[in-house]
């Protein structure tokens, strides 16, 4: 009788141990700096927009409603994103939005903002980078 009880106990322990092993094997909690890096990239994309005369002029025109500036910025950012990896960029200002490389948009995202001066007014420029985790 004792032995049977021990067998049941051992079987129960084995079941729990196997569950733990499965959990340990499947649970992939790797520490990563990827979100920090993606946040830096979002900041960089805004910086290269603001610090280049050509890009900042295009941003000002785009925010004012120019379609050609919209196309210019999309092309420009598409070229940069092509060298960075599989990122989708969403640029927003004054209720307008540009989406670049957003075919297979990742589930995770980071956002950064800058105050932009177009020569007359200040407005907020927001960049959101989407990526797969």
């Amino acid at each position: 009788m004792k032995a049977i009880v021990f067998s049941v106990e051992a079987m129960l322990s084995l079941t729990i141990a196997v569950s733990l092993l499965g959990f340990a094997a499947l649970h992939n909690a790797q520490p990563t700096y990827a979100p920090l890096y993606e946040y830096m990239v979002a900041q960089d994309l805004l910086e290269i927009g603001l610090k280049s005369g050509e890009n900042s002029a295009a941003i000002a025109e785009w925010a004012a409603g120019s379609d050609s500036a919209d196309a210019f910025l999309e092309r420009k950012y598409a070229k940069v994103l092509a060298g960075l990896g599989n990122y989708c960029l969403e640029l927003e200002a004054k209720g307008k939005r540009i989406e670049t490389n957003c075919g297979g948009r990742g589930k995770q995202s980071v956002s950064a903002t800058r105050l932009f001066f177009d020569g007359k007014n200040f407005f907020e420029l927001k960049a959101t980078v989407y990526f797969s985790g």
């Binding site: 990239v41 994309l45 910086e47 290269i48 280049s52 050509e54």
Partner: peptide, 9 residues
């Protein structure tokens, strides 16, 4: 990291 060199990315 994207940056500018002579106005180019």
């Amino acid at each position: 990291r994207p940056a500018l060199l002579d106005g180019e990315e």
